[in-house]
Design a protein around this nucleic acid. Structure first.
Ligand SMILES: [Mn+2]
Ligand SMILES: [Mn+2]
Ligand SMILES: [Zn+2]
Ligand SMILES: [Zn+2]
Lengths: 152, 152
DNA sequence: GCGTTATGGATAATGATTATCCTGAAAGAA
DNA sequence: TTCTTTCAGGATAATCATTATCCATAACGC
């Protein structure tokens, strides 16, 4: 259903740990576990999702620790945040650069469709508005295949 | 700086009032005032913005009334909501169908750049993901012209 | 190992949005 | 106009994801 190509969780984990280390962040067991969860997950987990998965290996981990680590990763541009005002934010640790998403409005599934890049359009908008554009967000909302089935 | 063409606040106000009326909503003075503010504003106001403007004519209006009216307008597809998790949502009452936005990450300015439509891309994503796509959102983030000046 | 200091855990605070409750106004009928 | 019904407004409490705070402790360079 969604783009699963070019995924290499182990390599991505190495990348993230190396970058955090070289920028002076400490590599605690909790932090490593969170990085692993992010590298291995493909569903754009929420902080709560990450926390739940984390409790299996580290039963005493605080939710605050997950929030703090996510903030860290955002600052280092190692995770992409998808903001929502009415439900929990979601995170992509595999591809931290902006890219389009297909989002199910019923079950909350989020996936990464393979699409042509938006750089040209961004340039066009920059020219017409005078903005110095540094980032973007493109979401497509609708029903995922599973939720369509349930409708009959 | 942004697209100001084809704006006709008076006509848009007529549209909105007519549609609310024919769908059985009562046209109270407060509601009409909120519709007027939305039709005339071009900066994508927040609920608080609308409320502040409203207080000039209706000094006793509750913030809850603005929230309720916005919810109503969303249900009737007469306003487009731009969600943010870390700051107040913003609203476009002029063009309630999805369209791209340029958003200043420093001062919060939001404007409507004139861009080619995304229907083709939406269709492409629908084909590749199996989603039944009903809506979308495209934001470009960066610094608006004014905020660029302040940097020197 | 030691000392320094960032980090984890627990919990309180924040703030936009929503829910609740009751009074009063809008709209339609007579 | 008056009456009646139901919807909407005002005030305020509740919600809930996210941040802030505080202190004990673990990480890492030496
Ligand atoms: Mn993604
Ligand atoms: Mn707009
Ligand atoms: Zn779904
Ligand atoms: Zn600006």
């Amino acid at each position: 259903m969604c783009d699963e190509a070019k995924r290499d969780p182990a390599e991505r984990l190495r990348q993230m740990t190396a970058r955090l280390k070289e920028r002076g962040h400490r590599l605690t067991p909790q932090r490593l576990a969170i990085l692993r969860i992010l590298a291995e997950s493909r569903g754009h987990p929420s902080v709560e999702d990450i926390h739940k998965a984390l409790l299996k290996d580290f039963p005493t981990t605080s939710l605050a620790t997950v929030y703090k680590t996510i903030t860290r990763l955002k600052d280092e541009n190692e995770v992409l945040e998808l903001e929502f005002s009415d439900l929990a934010n979601r995170y992509d640790g595999n591809t931290p650069t902006p890219h389009p998403h297909a989002i199910c409005t019923r079950c909350g599934a989020i996936c990464d469709p393979d699409t042509p890049p938006l750089e040209e359009l961004a340039k066009l908008v920059a020219d017409r508005t005078g903005f110095r554009i540094t980032s973007h967000r493109l979401d497509f909302y609708g029903l995922c295949p599973k939720c369509q089935e349930q409708d009959g």
